[in-house]
């Protein structure tokens, strides 16, 4: 029983956050570009989906994760967190990286043009990039912050909600691989993710660590 629920959760996660986006990617007629560019795209897309998954791999989903050892879940949450934060922080640079290997505008010029474009999608991208940096730093230096764990957890949650909301808008607005199915998948998953945390804050104000 225990194992089957654990398995069920695992499979659900794999299906929703991995198989489904890949399926949409494969079935859609997005232009196929060089292997390097497609790898970068998949990596970034994957990182974003895992970021949404992070909400479900936290204490916010404690009810659903009863059968799992929370310590293990949190360990994975941390490992995955640092990996995807790394990828997403690199993401603006990964966009322009292929220009190192092909003719066209210089990568550094492309980068400057990118971050000085003042459209909604880009501004959201820059804001969420900074939020991601903040989330990563406050996690790495949690012990040095000198705040109580519960306060930190609240901070982490609020930053995460803000991040995922902004990031979802950013992805929907600018994503190279956005079509209607992808758009719905991202919207639903990100809304669920946010809802999960909000529920935690508004309906179960006191949870025991």
């Amino acid at each position: 029983m225990k194992n089957s629920i654990k398995n069920y959760n695992k499979w659900a996660a794999i299906l929703l956050f991995f198989a489904l986006p890949i399926l949409i990617y494969v079935l859609s007629d997005f232009p196929r570009r060089s292997i390097l560019k497609e790898t970068i795209s998949i990596l970034t897309l994957g990182a974003f989906f895992v970021t949404m998954l992070q909400f479900f791999m936290s204490r916010a989903a404690k009810d659903k994760l009863k059968e799992h050892r929370m310590a293990t879940v949190i360990k994975w949450h941390k490992v995955l967190g640092y990996i995807v934060a790394g990828i997403l922080l690199l993401h603006p640079f990964l966009i322009i990286a292929p220009r190192f290997f092909e003719a066209g505008i210089l990568p550094q010029d492309a980068f400057i043009e990118l971050i000085t474009t003042s459209t909604q999608g880009v501004i959201l991208g820059i804001i969420t990039w900074m939020l991601m940096l903040l989330i990563a730093l406050t996690s790495i230096f949690r012990d040095k912050l000198g705040i109580r764990y519960k306060v930190w957890r609240m901070l982490h949650g609020i930053l995460s909600i803000t991040f995922i909301t902004g990031a979802a808008f950013h992805v929907i607005e600018l994503g190279r691989h956005i079509n209607i199915p992808m758009l719905w998948l991202i919207s639903v998953l990100s809304i669920l993710a946010v809802a999960l945390l909000l529920k935690l804050y508004f309906f179960k104000t006191s949870i025991k660590a």
Partner: peptide, 12 residues
């Protein structure tokens, strides 16, 4: 966007 759906409308 190729599919002609307005992301802006969706976002709104």
């Amino acid at each position: 966007m190729a599919k002609n759906i307005s992301r802006r409308e969706f976002i709104a």
